[in-house]
Every structure is written in C-alpha cells, then in structure tokens.
C-alpha cells in the first residue's frame, strides 16, 4: 500500500485539514446510530463512504463534498492543510471494520456486527474529539509485524 501512496503525484496532494475532522464527526453520528438501532444497512452505507475515502480520497466522499460545498465557504479562508495520505489510511481502516461488521450481520452474528461497528465508531470518535491520528499509531506497528 505504501508504495502506491509514496508515488510523487500522490505525495503532492494536500487537502484542507478541517475536512477529515468534519467527516469524522459525521461518521461518529452515523456509526452511533447504526450501533443504537442495530441496523446493518447504515453500516453498509458507511462502508461505501469509507471505500470512496480509502480509494479516491476523503475529499471525494459525500461527507467531504458537504464540507467543501456547505461548511468550507463559511469558515476562515486561511485553511490549515494536510497530506491526504493519513486520512486515506484511516478511511481504509474504517472500511475494514465496516466490512467485517457487515459480513457478521448478514451471517447472523450480531456480536461481530456490534464489535466491528464499535471499533469503527471508536476510531471516528477519537479522530473527531481528540484529533487522533490513526496512521501515526497503527501504521508503523503493522509494518513492524508484517514485513521483514
């Protein structure tokens, strides 16, 4: 994955740093609703949002578009920027949880749904409330265990 993301054309992409945090807030609300109502279709929809964020980039998800068209014009014009790769990584992790939770739900394993949706919610909430950087904490650990 990192080879792809280390390409110069990807490295050059910087986005408004407030966008991913706004998206994380919406994600928190959506996943909290999925958890409370135990509705698997909400998790499916959120999984699709994560998939767009992980492949095309967080600025192209529906949440990213809401930020760009409705929120951003009302904010300070001077925007802090960030590399697109860390939020993209977080979206990929979110997609993993959503996928596991969805498979669990359709297989009738409610506990798998609840635990996976719970982890995805925890990550989104940490990002929204604490500006938590999932890639900072997870990526190197994963790499340490998976490569020689």
């Amino acid at each position: 994955m990192s080879e792809v993301l280390n390409k110069p054309e990807v490295q050059k992409i910087y986005i408004d740093a407030r966008g991913p945090r706004f998206s994380a807030s919406l994600t928190t609300i959506v996943l909290a609703t999925a958890l409370v109502t135990q509705n698997k279709w909400i998790l499916v929809a959120q999984g699709l949002v994560f998939l767009i964020g992980a492949t095309r980039g967080p600025q192209f998800t529906p949440y990213g578009l809401i930020f760009k068209n409705i929120i951003k014009p009302r904010l300070n014009k001077v925007a802090p920027t960030e590399d697109v790769r860390p939020p993209k990584f977080a979206q990929a992790v979110g997609f993993g949880f959503a996928l596991v939770g969805t498979i669990g739900a359709f297989a009738g394993a409610d506990i798998v749904f609840t635990v996976a949706a719970g982890f995805a919610l925890a990550a989104a909430f940490l990002n929204a409330a604490f500006n938590y950087c999932l890639g900072c904490e997870m990526y190197l650990l994963i790499t340490r265990f998976t490569s020689k």
Partner: peptide, 8 residues
C-alpha cells in the same frame, strides 16, 4: 512515516 499528519 507517510500516514502521519503531525510528522510534518
């Protein structure tokens, strides 16, 4: 690392 906003 690459996936790290505060590194910059």
């Amino acid at each position: 690392s690459a996936f790290c906003t505060p590194c910059r």
